[in-house]
Amino acid sequence: MIRLLRKTVATPSPLISIDPSACERVDISVVGREIEDHVKRLFRGSLAIRQVDAGSDNAAEQELVALSNPFYDVERFGVHFVASPRHADMLMATGPVARNMAEALRRTYAATPDPKFVVALGDDAIDGGIFRGSYAVYDAVKNVIPVDYEIAGDPPSPRAILCALLKILETIGANSLN
């Protein structure tokens, strides 16, 4: 816990901001190859992501699902969406954390083995987005579990997610060098 706290303190802003227009222009295969390089180095060739829907409106899920379609096909870069947090290196939490889903989120976090990274995906997950202030939500994933990185967008496009993932991996790589 202390380690996590220190980690959150060490990374003042977990938000991964990317220039959308720049992202529009990049070639997916190039980004993908870079991701693959990082994954090979940091995760021995396979990054396992567990996606947690914490009360999302399914917009972010659509985009995440798109990542696996033949166009993007992230699996070729070594990124997998897995069925259990026990297998995951990274949690991707979406949605503003509805009250009913908070416990599920916490349990998923607890069940993910260390070392683990938590990414809040989409504006809802970062600060509640349009649901902010509702009695039914906790407003942000970080209010429930520690969050390492955030990917903005409502929802972020698959291309944006890929770019952000690359950035996250670069950050992780940089941190691990430190």
């Binding site: 026990r86 607890a110 069940a111």
Partner: peptide, 12 residues
């Protein structure tokens, strides 16, 4: 490695 004990993952 450090061993931690947690509850069985039950998919909710």
């Amino acid at each position: 490695q450090k061993t931690t004990f947690g509850p069985t993952w039950d998919c909710g």
